[in-house]
Computed example of a mutant assay.
Amino acid sequence: MSAVTAAAPAIALRGLEKSFRALHVLRGVDLDVERGSVVALLGSNGAGKTTLIRILTTLLAPDAGTASVEGLDVTTQGARVRETISLTGQSAAVDEVLTGRENLVLVARLRHQPDPGAVADALLERFSLAEAGGRRVATWSGGMRRRLDIAMSLIGGPRVVLLDEPTTGLDPEARLEVWDAIRRLAQQGTTVLLSTQYLDEAEHLADRIAILHGGRIIADGTLAELKALLPPARVEYVEQQPTLEDVFLAVIGATPADTEEQGR
């Protein structure tokens, strides 16, 4: 995990609200994401994670409250916010007709980088894609495409990266590849807000975990702090520590039976 600095938050949300007609999605979200940290935003499907991400990327305007990125207001300073951030969505935004290197060179040219070829080669090496760089992306695995997508999002040096459920639909091996790419971002000091519904993903990657439920952040802390919300582990033959899934279900007031019923 990355080191957390004591500087002002890279992302600050205060009283953020958003509704779609009668549907109240965000009901007053408060959240800080410290510079250079990885914060996982956990929530069930429909909890409002993507809505929050869209507000931070200036694609949606909030109904109330404030949101800032690197001290820039997303409502009044949208252009500068977009220069500061990068977004990787739920599906890889890569051109399968082009090679991996050609995808990177294209984006580098669009972002007016002085040496697009050098930028592409450096990112291919950084994300362990150099050997496949000359092949069309259509021949790549899902994990390789997602790593390329993340690599493309880093061109231009964004200080904040927003990942909206980046491992949705990937097999376990591909998920591990993407996890490794996210760890590398954190190690290099990039601020990452990771929206996910996978509890193990948050447990393995995040410095802090925020749980979004009912339109609000109902729990926010390190994994150890969240586990401390539950009673101490029972000791029978071995100590059984609560999992992040136990914490998540407890703070939203659900039980395993409830989640099984929703899946039917």
Rank of each mutant, 00 (worst) to 15 (best):
residue 128 S to G: 00
residue 20 F to Q: 04
residue 141 S to G: 09
residue 111 R to F: 00
residue 141 S to T: 09
residue 137 V to I: 03
residue 78 G to A: 11
residue 25 V to I: 13
residue 172 P to F: 06
residue 140 W to D: 01
residue 165 E to S: 02
residue 92 A to P: 06
residue 254 A to F: 00
residue 241 Q to H: 14
residue 155 I to A: 00
residue 231 P to D: 02
residue 230 L to R: 12
residue 109 R to E: 11
residue 5 T to I: 04
residue 143 G to N: 08
residue 134 G to N: 15
residue 252 I to L: 05
residue 110 L to W: 14
residue 111 R to T: 00
residue 23 L to V: 13
residue 78 G to Y: 10
residue 79 A to G: 13
residue 257 A to L: 07
residue 17 E to W: 13
residue 49 K to T: 04
residue 7 A to H: 15
residue 206 A to M: 10
residue 150 I to Y: 03
residue 77 Q to P: 10
residue 108 A to T: 05
residue 220 D to G: 08
residue 88 T to H: 00
residue 103 N to F: 04
residue 20 F to D: 05
residue 215 G to L: 11
residue 132 A to Q: 15
residue 180 D to H: 01
residue 201 E to H: 04
residue 51 T to H: 10
residue 57 T to S: 14
residue 96 E to P: 02
residue 89 G to C: 06
residue 111 R to H: 01
residue 39 V to Y: 13
residue 45 N to V: 03
residue 251 V to N: 08
residue 167 T to M: 05
residue 196 T to H: 05
residue 242 P to H: 01
residue 213 H to S: 13
residue 144 M to V: 02
residue 199 L to G: 01
residue 155 I to E: 00
residue 197 Q to S: 07
residue 189 G to D: 04
residue 180 D to G: 04
residue 55 I to R: 07
residue 98 L to V: 02
residue 177 E to T: 04
residue 67 A to L: 10
residue 41 L to A: 03
residue 198 Y to G: 09
residue 46 G to V: 06
residue 178 V to Y: 03
residue 74 V to Y: 11
residue 105 V to S: 06
residue 177 E to A: 08
residue 194 L to W: 09
residue 117 G to D: 11
residue 34 E to S: 06
residue 112 H to V: 07
residue 201 E to C: 02
residue 9 P to R: 02
residue 129 L to A: 07
residue 6 A to C: 11
residue 197 Q to K: 12
residue 261 E to D: 03
residue 21 R to K: 15
residue 36 G to Y: 14
residue 192 V to P: 05
residue 164 D to Y: 01
residue 161 V to I: 01
residue 192 V to F: 12
residue 143 G to W: 09
residue 263 G to E: 13
residue 206 A to W: 14
residue 111 R to N: 10
residue 189 G to F: 04
residue 44 S to H: 12
